[in-house]
Amino acid sequence: MKKILNLQVNGETHEIAVNPADTLLHVLREGLGLIGTKRGCDSGGCGCCTVLVDGKAVYSCMLLALSAVGKSIVTIEGLSTDGKLDPLQEAFIKAGAVQCGFCVCGMIISSKGLLMENPHPKEAEIRQALSGNLCRCTGYHKIVEAVRIASAHS
């Protein structure tokens, strides 16, 4: 039986009916139409479903939507302000850190979580923070470079 719950996503409260077993990823994509968060492995192995929950990066495919009630959720759609991209998004463009683009929303959200806690990370810290995000295209160097660029401007 579905349950009605309120989810706070990107600063807005959404009332939505969910099955108890629905993951946050499922609800974001299928319920709220926020398809920037990608469904990759759907088992906590690739990172493209990463969102921020209370400022911390988590795999939304591993989190039940019911467990996200009362928490602040930020997806890739929530980073821009008044139509202006977040400096981190700008840095990814500047560094050429996007190829096929499937992993990039998770990469940016994981990077955002890192920079919120550690605005000036060392390269090893960037790589550690992104170790749970797989990219099959870039070889990671330009992604790390993008985070360094964003870090330098913060």
């Binding site: 906590g44 990172g47 795999y59 591993m62 994981s110 923070a129 170790s131 749970g132 995000n133």
Partner: peptide, 11 residues
């Protein structure tokens, strides 16, 4: 703990 991805560590 150093081996585990941050997304897992946070949950």
């Amino acid at each position: 703990l150093e081996y585990i991805p941050v997304q897992v560590k946070n949950m």
